[in-house]
Design a protein around this nucleic acid. Structure first.
Lengths: 128, 128
DNA sequence: CTTTACCTTCCCGTAAGGGGATAGTTTATG
DNA sequence: CATAAACTATCCCCTTACGGGAAGGTAAAG
């Protein structure tokens, strides 16, 4: 399969796939006589794994570690669990930070008259 | 006041302050005979505004717009309101995205045995 | 045969600063 | 007073995870 077909099938972009190869996340793809990258079922499965892990918010670096664990038949599930827990914590922290912003914005929005007069509690608050 | 004092007082870093000046978010600070940036109450208030807006998650570009509105005595509060609403929407989208990740991770974590055996539902899921 | 659709590599740009080198200033200390 | 510690200045590279787009080769379609 060519890179475009893989992209279409996995939902990633060709750019991303090349990028993952470039940074060493996945091994360089085999090349056809036309120098096109040629993917087999195994490589596609790996890319799918990468895509799914990325969609869960894991960094490329983390995905590299997850891939290594995946390939290691003798890993302990604890190791994966620990990574997931750490990632969860990071996500929860981001959510908390965003929730704080959201709450503040909500308060400000409620106070703003939202009309054509210049008086604006939002700006007043930012300037406090 | 020197940049370090301003930084300490506002909670920003000197690097950030220089950066904001560099990208034109705030006007270049006046310089003393030693070439040090010298800040007055007015500039500090502006930097405080910037810092507060940034802490609410507004991008530097957005902060520039907010600053412009702040300086414009004849702005309509609608304009500020609209920016805040748009920003709120963006925040809510980020939260929703993170919540989705969190939910998936939670499910996976519950299923993982978290022991020294290799069997791992998390990896299995990523590979599905 | 030519157009269109892929593919290749390469290089630039992003957001918002952080890190660190080098050099001049100012302040604190012995 | 001399020197060392603490600031400040500019400058340049690094980060994340690709997207955009150029230049040029290849393949499939009309």
């Amino acid at each position: 399969m060519n890179i475009g077909e893989v992209a279409a099938e996995t939902g990633m972009t060709a750019k991303s796939i090349r990028y993952y190869e470039q940074v060493g996340l996945v091994a360089p793809a085999a090349r056809g006589q036309n120098n096109y990258r040629a993917y087999g079922a195994r490589e596609i499965a790996e890319l799918r794994f990468v895509h799914r892990a990325r969609s869960l918010g894991f960094s490329v670096k983390d995905v590299a570690d997850l891939l290594a664990l995946w390939r290691d038949r003798s890993r302990a599930s604890q190791q994966v669990h620990a990574m997931a827990v750490a990632h969860m914590a990071a996500i929860e922290q981001k959510i908390a930070s965003l929730e704080t912003m959201k709450a503040t914005l909500q308060t400000l929005l409620r106070r703003c008259h939202n009309n054509d007069r210049p008086d604006c509690p939002i700006l007043d608050d930012l300037a406090r």
